[in-house]
Amino acid sequence: MNGVHDLGGMHGLGPIDIEQDEPVFHHEWERRVFGMFLPVFATGAFNIDEFRHAIERMGPKYLATSYYEHWLAAFETLLVEKGVISADEFAARRVALAGGMN
């Protein structure tokens, strides 16, 4: 697909932000998303190319979000599409977690 992920040769996306002594992860949630990668694949619910395509289907949000958010978005999309979790139970869990912390 001629998606926003296909970046080679584009102009105007800004300077390269080089972080000295960069940590492997910047947030705890990034650790959890990374750590789920292999276990989620091991369920066999989808393959690596479906995963890549799910990232490419993010649309304009792709450019405004980080690498591990791309992974998260692909997990959400595919796990619901493949029926591993339902959109309703995922939404309900998010509401519970948001409410529980306020």
Binding site: M1, G8, D49, R52
Partner: peptide, 30 residues
């Protein structure tokens, strides 16, 4: 659908540098 031919090399002339061997085709696999 999914494709691994980036836009910037579509409809361009090049030369085969090396053959990596046989791999799964992601367009159909996805």
């Amino acid at each position: 659908g999914h494709i691994r031919l980036p836009r910037y090399i579509r409809d361009k002339e090049g030369v085969i540098e090396r053959d990596h061997g046989v791999f799964v085709f992601p367009d159909t696999h996805a």
